[in-house]
Computed example of a mutant assay.
Amino acid sequence: MDTSKNILLKSLFIAGTDTDVGKTYITAGLAVVLRKMGVDVGVMKPFAAGDAQKKGYKSEDVEILSSAAQTCDPENLVNPQFFLIPASPYTAWKKLKIKPKVSTVLSSFKKLSKLHKVILVEGMGGIMTPILKDYYITNLIKEMKIPTVIVTRSKIGTVNHTVMTVKMCEKYKIPIKGIIINDFESGYPIKDLTRDLQNLTGIKVLGSIPFIQDMSDASLNQIFKKNIDLKLLLK
């Protein structure tokens, strides 16, 4: 049964409060859930960095996302730019002399948007990761004209990072769909953290995702349907 007709969601930018907060796995899980609901979902990671894979997409993150969405879109659309050092696009530019191509990223996003009903765009690092001088992830989201989901973690310090991330989204007038907590390390009790984040930011916590060992379709679909408020996300 195709339930996609009832879904109003267009595209989402999955942003993080920091690096290594689990954006890729949250994006992958959302891609699986949407696909299982009958939605034609595409994925994108505008900028990726690190060691290149020998097979498939250069970026392991892009490989994970494409597998979750079961897409085989061209690499130059899904990941327009890849840097061979683990750094922000700005730092990679200065070190490798390769300038980040924002216009290419935006045109790739438009092309992908014509190929799929929904595009899940995974960010890089935190929301103020620099791409160019005075141009950050926030600027990119703003130019894409899509809302964001903020991925945060459960460890101590996350309240500070999450509040700052929300404040920057507000400054750039970026709509926030909600917050997802990645509960894969010791820290705050999730109930307390959910209460505090909602009270402090006024943004709904969509749910929390436990550490995932089984990355199969069935596992991701079950975990995300159980732990994420999909109705609120898809409004």
Rank of each mutant, 00 (worst) to 15 (best):
T3N: 05
S4W: 15
I7E: 00
S11Y: 15
A15E: 01
A15K: 10
G16C: 11
T17V: 14
V21H: 13
K23A: 07
T27L: 03
A31V: 04
L34D: 01
M37I: 12
V41W: 02
G42A: 07
V43N: 02
V43R: 05
M44Y: 08
F47T: 00
A48V: 03
D51I: 12
G56T: 03
Y57M: 00
E60M: 10
V62N: 06
L65C: 03
L77A: 06
N79W: 09
P89Q: 10
Y90A: 05
K94Q: 11
K101N: 11
V102K: 03
S107H: 12
S107T: 07
K110Q: 10
K111L: 11
K111W: 15
L112D: 07
L112Y: 15
L112T: 05
L115G: 04
H116F: 03
V118R: 01
V121I: 09
E122M: 06
G123A: 07
Y136V: 00
I141R: 05
R153A: 09
S154T: 03
V163F: 05
M164A: 11
V166T: 04
K167V: 04
C169V: 01
C169M: 09
K173G: 03
I176F: 07
K177H: 10
N182R: 11
S186I: 09
Y188H: 06
K191A: 09
D192T: 15
D196R: 15
L197E: 01
T201K: 02
S208Q: 11
Q213W: 11
M215H: 13
S216I: 07
S219M: 12
K226Y: 15
L234T: 01
K235Y: 02
